[in-house]
Design a protein around this nucleic acid. Structure first.
Lengths: 202, 202
DNA sequence: AGTTGCTTAGTACGAGTGTTCTAAGGTACA
DNA sequence: TGTACCTTAGAACACTCGTACTAAGCAACT
């Protein structure tokens, strides 16, 4: 990526710090004062150049909508792709970052730890943490979704849900477990799978 | 913490979603339209109540400075265990929390995205993010560890490593890929698997 | 029916804000 | 010295935005 000039870097660093502490962007006039300038024009010029270089972006005409595109703060660097097959895939130089804290930062989310092996063919295994998003009505689930559902007599389990005109089918992704077929009013869908996390012990 | 009324919760969830995707706060009039209201007053009323309850805050008089407060500390609530087999496991009331941001907050870590299916039997599949810890010497790897290793002629791949007196064996966990057997000086181990993360698209 | 309390509609105002324009200042280079 | 180019100053404009205010709607209760 193209480098920043000294004045651009000074502004960029100040912006990162400001947004980090205030959790929102400053206005152009605030930047102006922080850079000890007496006119908004230089700030605007620097911002446009930094946008062209891919460091920042904002929504035109709207106040305080500036955002940092490549924050070098939170997160773990994503170095590239690795092949499991055997082909060569070079490590990238660009330092994209992943912040797993906000990776699953969705409203109404909770985590469950998996016991058992009924979702093994979807690569969800014993001990995995599954990130679920709350569901209040069964209508919010779509055909094939992996859901946490409660059925009388079966308890709460993690299954794939399929809809047919008369009934709802809950299928494990492991052939040794038979599907559960019930009418929609016998089932209570509590959440829908958003992600999976696994910690390998050493 | 004091609970939110339904309309407050609807607005709160929308705000979290908006800020998550746009990286800045909406204006009151944007909230107004999103809530299908025709006046800014109800939004203002709801915001003030949510601020009093400690959910949000903003800087008075300044545009788009609203921010979500996280009084429960970072993280997603861990509600309990869920069985994949069919047994009943009740949801826990205790609100243990998991912060995936610090979940993988280990020194010398980086992330790779997986291509291919050679680790499929260890439930690491295409598109998964693998969290690796840097390794400088092959001695830091233990028998059976999943490592990112570079072998001349094979590129950098994700495999299980096994040591024998004379050679090092890299095995995929997929029978259609043959193991690679080389002498220790032909292999360069770059990292060891610490965790796996997967995002399910909706 | 009347009262009370809360929510919503609608409007208005002033300050904040992004943007644009012209002019002045400064620097590099011929 | 002169020219070209970029940066800065300063002002002005139009629009956005937070805020305040009044009136109307609405439900619960007396």
């Amino acid at each position: 990526m193209e480098n920043l000039t000294p004045v651009q870097k000074e502004l960029y660093d100040w912006l990162v710090q400001y947004i980090n502490t205030n959790k929102h962007s400053p206005s152009i006039r605030e930047m102006m004062k922080a850079m000890k300038l007496r006119s908004p024009a230089p700030i605007q010029s620097r911002l446009e150049k930094m946008r062209n270089k891919g460091y920042i972006d904002w929504t035109e005409g709207q106040a305080r909508t500036l955002r940092i595109l490549q924050p070098h703060g939170e997160g773990i660097p994503l170095l590239g792709k690795i092949t499991a097959g055997g082909l060569v895939e070079p490590f990238r130089d660009e330092q994209e970052k992943i912040d797993f804290g906000s990776f699953f930062n969705l409203p109404n989310c909770y985590v469950l730890q998996v016991v058992g092996d009924s979702m093994i063919e979807d690569h969800i295994t014993e001990g995995d943490y599954v990130i679920m998003q709350s569901i209040t009505s069964i209508q919010q689930a779509k055909d094939g979704d992996i859901v946490a559902a409660r059925v009388e007599g079966y308890g709460t389990t993690l299954k794939k849900i399929y809809f047919s005109p008369s009934k709802v089918s809950l299928k494990a992704s492991n052939p040794k477990y038979a599907p559960i077929n019930v009418s929609p009013d016998q089932i209570q869908v509590q959440g829908s799978l958003m992600g999976v996390c696994r910690l390998h012990q050493k």
